[in-house]
Design a protein around this nucleic acid. Structure first.
Lengths: 347, 347
DNA sequence: CCAATTTGTGCACACGTGTGCGTAGCCACA
DNA sequence: TGTGGCTACGCACACGTGTGCACAAATTGG
């Protein structure tokens, strides 16, 4: 190992306590002594040992991040956001990839108890009840991302899915659409449920009952399910057929658009389509997909901010952060405005 | 914090030394005592504190990984490989994202001196001379990935780029091509240089002098450069025009294929194309791109294996690991074999 | 039955850092 | 000269774990 404060102490001719205080800016140390200590530290190339520090005041200056898969761009962007905030605050980022494997997940959560991290950001799809209780035992701060558990009193950061769906519907209403269909996500996904709720709320506010009008089509976040929903739509008589589709994610929207093209239905002229997520491919498909962007990096940043504030004791009470989405207008709704590629409007 | 070995000691009625030895399998502890200790540890939910452990025997059981950008799929896959090996060996993975920023890079490397990691895997494009020397001071093991520095005595893991390019050329030679062009990468990238060397070697072995025949076209790893190289090719008289292209990465190959299509030149019938990297899009373009796959996850795994072996002292001498590529045959060379989508041949 | 050996455990210190409290040295003022 | 207050620093212990050595107890051998 490198030089320690004891080496500096020997060098300068003071005790190690004095060195510690000098380095930490204790005002009781005289300017002359501090100067000598700092010089010696510089000369010896001193760097504080973090095991020692960690032991001394019960912190290790690192935070953990649990995600299922780093190859998924969504998670990669979360990592990006978290890391930026963490580094700036002087925290290391310890990454746990669970591959959605229950055992890996448990092992990662175990680390909390080892005092290896000062706090944890967790983005596991299903955190079982018993795991949660086990986590509560340790006093380590935890922030849940996306799938929050406010009822258990965990800090959380999530997206305003409801509002996002409303943005999509309101955009279509503003373009004159009335018969706006929805292709749902899987029932077990809480974000899918929230988006559906937002869709219902916005369209009811416009005086349309989507259930009575048969505007809700089942899907499960896959391209396949988007295509199948379109198949069902075109079997309807023209007067009952929707003029616009709100898909609950971009994959579903893509499947729908491809199937529409195969049926010879032109987007956006004969059918408007809105997605959700703003996946990278959304800007490259033709026509460009209007979609609801999730502030992914900001999710990571917000989670890290919250966690670090909690670690520092700046946050005492339970807190949940909800971030708003952003409607990215491209060509798939035929806004009537310029349809040229570079002009992406943000609402 | 959680319970410590002292708590267990009190519970069982022995000293903390005995507890430590019992938990670590010291044969001098009687079976009866060990049993009682293990039971108490279980009951109290004891988990060893790693700051204490780290302090006691100078290890912290975590490795660092320095990469420029996690959004880049290439790096994400490396992380995936490293993490698997690390977890299995009981090491935590600390991630440092530099965003190719010199200051971030330095800061990450500094961490080595803080005793925060037992070793480091570094995948920074340019590790400056002075940084390298600074790193040598600490005794912390280091493995360089992709851009190795054998001349400085650093352990390294890299790809056999030369062999990969030879695989590509030999595949085309086997299909009867003689006039095989090459679109190069940037001169400053060592992998691009190695691939070019492999191309030259393989094609010379077939009795063709690529420089004299004007088969080498400058590029810089971008789609744009691939397209421009094609523009130059088609200006050549038919008898001097290549019948096949080896692009030094997939982006270049994609640019070339798109430009060929625009000129009405059919791939693979009129021009065969091979890429390098096997990016995700390679299997989705039409026709599917035959390309040289880099074993990316294996790179990460190999680096982690090497680093951990070094940390454990199992490796004393300098070591460099070179992994071979794999030719993925799809349709862009018109192999004459089945061109159906699902049958991807591996050589 | 005593000495020698083995077995099992505890003491005390180490690792590097931080900190409450005590104290030596200095100055001011009565 | 004595008292009080202030400055600048050291002592000693804490944090959790690991380990060399000493030592008591149990076992073996003579």
């Amino acid at each position: 190992m490198g030089p320690t404060i004891k080496d500096i102490a020997k060098e300068v001719g003071v005790s190690h306590s004095t060195v510690s205080r000098a380095l930490n800016g204790d005002p009781r140390i005289s300017a002359a002594t501090r100067q000598k200590v700092l010089e010696a530290a510089e000369r010896l190339g001193y760097q504080p040992n973090l095991s020692g520090r960690g032991l001394a005041h019960g912190k290790v200056f690192s935070i953990g991040l649990v995600i299922p898969d780093i190859l998924e761009p969504f998670f990669a962007r979360v990592v990006n956001g978290v890391s930026q905030v963490a580094y700036r605050a002087g925290f290391n980022l310890i990454l746990y990839l669970t591959h959605a494997d229950r055992r890996m997940e448990m092992a990662a959560l175990q680390q909390i108890g080892h005092g290896r991290v000062d706090g944890m950001i967790i983005m596991a799809r299903k955190v079982g009840r018993q795991s949660v209780l086990a986590l509560r035992r340790h006093k380590v701060p935890i922030v849940l991302l996306i799938e929050t558990m406010p009822e258990a009193g965990f800090d959380g950061v999530r997206v305003n899915n409801e509002g996002g769906a409303m943005q999509a519907v309101n955009h279509l209403l503003g373009l004159g659409h009335k018969r706006i269909a929805c292709i749902t996500g899987p029932r077990h996904a809480s974000d899918a449920r929230e988006r559906l709720r937002g869709y219902r709320q916005a369209i009811r506010a416009a005086g349309v009952d989507p259930d009575a009008e048969g505007l809700i089509f089942k899907g499960n976040f896959t391209e396949q399910s988007g295509a199948e929903a379109v198949d069902r739509m075109i079997q309807l008589p023209p007067d009952r057929r929707p003029t616009a589709i709100v898909a609950m994610n971009d994959a579903t929207a893509l499947g729908a658009m491809n199937r529409l093209a195969r049926h010879g239905i032109v987007v956006p002229d004969e059918m408007a389509v809105v997605g959700f997520d703003d996946m990278p491919f959304a800007r490259f498909v033709h026509p460009g997909l209007t979609t609801v962007r999730q502030p992914i990096e900001e999710l990571g940043k917000a989670a890290a901010d919250l966690l670090i504030a909690r670690i520092r004791g700046e946050v005492k009470e339970y807190r949940e952060v909800v971030l708003n989405t952003q409607l990215i207008v491209r060509e798939s709704c035929g806004s009537g405005r310029a349809r040229s590629h570079p002009s992406e409007k943000e609402c």
